[in-house]
Simulated assay, not measured.
Amino acid sequence: MSQDIALVALAAVGVVLALFGLAFFIRPRWFFSWLKGTLALFLIGAGAYVALLALDLRHYQSLDSMQTIATIGVSKTGPQAWRVRLERTEQPPLEVVIRGDQWQVDARIIRLAGPLNWLGVKPAYRLERLSGRYVSLEQERSGQRTVHPLGEESWFDTWVLDQSFGLPFVEAVYGNATFMPLRDGAIFDVRLSSTGLVALPGNEQAREAMEEWFPQAG
């Protein structure tokens, strides 16, 4: 089942549950017991919740397995200043300025659990932000920080609500790639699994930067 069909099925379940609950109010004779009224309210709430969940997941991309979700290209524009080009699947490229010595991408990951998992909705992700970092602790504290948001705002934010209150049948996970070195001409591949992000070198400049940086960092 494709992700689009699975999301439509998820939304349909929510609508059916909500309509079934509303039927109790349309037929007053069904209100002879407190149990039926309670059931009606439960169905309306459950249906609305599932439908809103499906609506919010439209802002996320489906995740099959470990896959490349973005490419990072770096070009130097000045001392500790870099132009970073972010290319994402099914979205226009984004160019931003990053200050510092390293870059990092953060992402949100949502997995459905329990009965909702039976609908076949795959884990979904959304890139959250792209940021820079200085190696020097003094610069990190006092230097110009650069953080660029990448996600779209949603009035019903499943990820935030689950982090704050623990929504039923939802698992919200925060993933980030290890800070990677900024190097003129370097290209990195950002890959994602259902557990987190990893950045890998995409060309020789990126490989050389990583070989120089990580032994030095250790």
Rank of each mutant, 00 (worst) to 15 (best):
M210K: 02
V74A: 02
R207Y: 08
L17D: 09
L57E: 12
Y174C: 00
A206M: 07
P123C: 01
Q91G: 06
A81K: 10
F32W: 12
V147L: 13
P215G: 00
P115E: 01
R58I: 11
V105A: 01
P93S: 01
Q163F: 09
D56V: 13
V105Q: 02
S33R: 10
R183N: 04
D184I: 05
L167P: 12
P79W: 02
D157I: 07
Q144S: 14
A9I: 08
E95V: 13
L35T: 13
E153I: 06
A51L: 15
E204I: 08
Q139N: 13
R141M: 11
P181H: 00
P123S: 00
F25C: 06
V190C: 03
T146K: 01
G185W: 01
E140Y: 03
D56G: 10
P79K: 04
A46V: 13
Y60N: 08
F165Y: 14
A46T: 14
A40T: 13
G166E: 07
E204G: 02
N176T: 06
D101L: 04
P215L: 03
L116C: 03
V198G: 04
D56L: 09
L55G: 14
E128I: 01
A172Y: 06
F188Q: 04
G45K: 03
W103P: 05
V105R: 00
A217G: 00
A51P: 10
S2G: 06
E138W: 12
L57A: 14
E153H: 09
L57S: 14
A48K: 00
E153R: 14
I109S: 00
S142V: 11
L150H: 09
G151Y: 11
L197I: 11
V8D: 07
H59M: 09
K76P: 05
M180A: 09
P93L: 00
T71K: 12
Y60W: 11
V96S: 05
V16P: 03
S131E: 10
T38I: 14
M1S: 09
A81D: 09
R145H: 14
T77G: 05
F179Y: 13
R27E: 14
G196D: 06
F25L: 15
Q91Y: 04
W30C: 11
A217F: 09
L63E: 06
G132H: 01
T146R: 02
E212Q: 10
A107C: 12
M180Q: 09
V84N: 02
P115N: 00
D189Y: 08
T77P: 08
A6E: 10
A11M: 10
G196K: 01
P201S: 03
V135T: 08
I187A: 05
A18Y: 08
Q61H: 15
A23I: 08
V190G: 03
G218W: 07
M210S: 07
V173G: 01
I110Q: 00
Q163H: 13
T146S: 15
I69W: 12
V8Y: 06
L94F: 08
D101K: 02
E212H: 09
P215S: 04
V15W: 07
T71Y: 08
G114H: 02
S65R: 13
V173Y: 07
S154A: 15
G45A: 15
S33P: 07
V97G: 06
L10G: 07
L127M: 12
A40E: 10
Y174T: 13
